[in-house]
Simulated scan of single mutants.
Amino acid sequence: MAGLHRVAHRGYSAVAPENTLPALAAGVLAGATLIEFDVRTTADGVPVVIHDRTVDRTTGGTGHIWELTLDEISALEAGSWFSPAYAGTRIPLLREVIDLLRPHAVLAPSAEEAGVTPDTAPRIELLLEIKPPTTPEQVKVILGQVTEAGLRDRTVVQSFDPEIVQLVGEVAPDVRLGLLRHGFDDEQARVAKELRLSYVNPNLRAVLADPPAVAALADAGVGVMPWTPNDTALWPALVEAGVAGLINDRTGELTGWMIARGLA
């Protein structure tokens, strides 16, 4: 089962503060094939990259993202909670994240002219999670930034909210879609077909408990990438269950483990 995705969850978040530019850059260097990150929108309509609904856990500030302006969020320090080495790190704009990752996702014409192809220089892809609450206009702004960067074909957009996934599919029919889940249910295959999903990404326990559901989705052309298996002892069973990749925090270890077993 070669070619499994190595997904850097919020970047290489075992070695740098999650969803920051250092973590995302580290994910690239550690061999991730997909860089996962979370997008929310500020009170004044600017997409930023942060997981939580509030800034409380990862900064010295307080408040919901959608109640804070970009200026207020940009003033917050978002690295010291992880390590003093990252003091001064900020919550990044989506545009900054795209600018960081784009050179690793798209081959420049000069590279192609020199004979460098995706086979000789593997490219990353983006796994962009849109967090609720969001509006149709905010979704359009997020997808607009991806489009302006020429990364629509290098991006999978996912959410826990099926309505957001449906909206993304309406705004950008050519973008691959993923639905995050806590577990599988009897309607999974039907929902996957209706939403035109490329991926269903559940909790790792759901995969271990129900490998037939993984197989059924695979038969329908839908990959399954569980979150967040950080325990290396679980990786063989998840691979045996037929997953399309693993979303975890230990990117470097996962890359080495897959390469050693011929899975990369």
Rank of each mutant, 00 (worst) to 15 (best):
F82L: 02
I50Y: 01
G169M: 08
E77K: 11
V49Q: 03
S80D: 07
H5T: 03
V224F: 06
L128R: 02
L107D: 04
T120A: 10
D174T: 10
E113W: 10
K131L: 01
I247S: 07
N201K: 11
D210V: 09
T41H: 13
V106Y: 03
V243K: 00
L100C: 13
L177V: 01
V28R: 00
A237H: 04
A172H: 00
F184S: 06
G115D: 05
L126A: 06
I73K: 01
R181L: 12
L204M: 14
A30C: 12
P132Y: 11
A149K: 05
D231P: 11
L208A: 09
A14F: 06
L197A: 09
P162E: 00
D174M: 07
G223F: 07
N19M: 04
R196D: 10
G223K: 06
A105Q: 05
H64T: 08
L76S: 06
L195D: 01
D52W: 00
V222W: 04
T42I: 03
R123D: 01
A14P: 01
L179G: 02
H104A: 14
V157Y: 00
D71N: 12
V171W: 00
G223L: 05
P211M: 01
T59I: 02
V224D: 01
A43T: 00
D231H: 14
L246G: 05
W257C: 06
P236E: 02
P202M: 08
F82T: 02
D185I: 00
F184A: 03
L68V: 08
V146P: 05
V168G: 11
A32N: 07
I259M: 14
P173A: 14
R176I: 08
A220S: 12
L126G: 08
A220W: 08
T89V: 15
I50R: 01
A189G: 07
T41N: 10
Q138A: 15
Q188D: 15
